[in-house]
Amino acid sequence: MNDRPINNRAWLFVLPVLVFVLFSSLLPMMTVVNYSFQDTMGQNNFFWNGIAWFQNLLDPSTDIGGRFGNALLRNLIFSLVVLFIEVPLGIAVAICIPRHGWKVGATLVMIALPLLIPWNVVGTIWQIFARADIGLLGAALTRMGIHYNDTQDPTSAWATIVVMDVWHWTGMVALLAYAGLKSIPDAFYQAARIDGAGRWSVFRNIELPKLQKVLVIAVLLRFMESFMIYTEPATVTGGGPGEATSFLSLDLVKIALGQVDLGNAAALSLVYNLITLSICWVFFTVMTQLDQRKDL
């Protein structure tokens, strides 16, 4: 069957990558795994702790378990809200982008600008922008008599973070959707015009089905990134007011670096990682299934 020559020297070429992955991913990961099964009394003395950290984490009646459950819920709600706003909005923006001429470049650059700003800078921009005393947005809202204060009012804090994420990332969905729209041959639009189909029908029966693949990718990317959100809320609200915007990653940092509670933090990061992985796996399966339906 297999009569191709086998050359074991080929492994030499793979070796650098293996070493790199070992130091960049496997060793740090294994350190975390180590912490999650051990406890320490200091002086770098560790002893076996079994699965106690995990039991704690997954038991909502404990302090850490309660925090974990609440933060996970916040993450899921945040991701869903952001997806429900950004994906339809991104498609709508993509449809409005001109298809020909100099306006294309200008529009695309404008849309891509927020994507080019470092994440902590985005956070800082919005922190100032949203301040109720001097921020353009915050002060304007307050002057209009709207009760807004993102450091004291949970609703304001949530709204700020969601709007910031929409501002930051809708552009990416729009760019992906635009690429998808551009790949639809003109003949489809002509055929629809000849058939007498209306704008909505063109969207429903041509554009949306043709965008399906690209949208799966957009949803996957947006989900992953929003589920792991850290920098922006850390800068803008620092997880507050109270625990209102304490997402998993913020909590994790508090536990690991604030409380130096390595066991709990390690267990939390592993479970966090597993959740992200399994959701990605589901998406990946859906994507490859779609791939098999050719020509959509």
């Binding site: 003949a187 489809f188 000849i194 029966n205 043709k210």
Partner: peptide, 20 residues
């Protein structure tokens, strides 16, 4: 307008509504 004319067209690409 196009929709009021009695025209049908077939293209080099296979043009059908993908979701129908």
């Amino acid at each position: 307008p196009v929709r009021r004319r009695s025209v049908a067209m077939v293209y080099q690409q296979f043009v059908n509504y993908p979701s129908l």
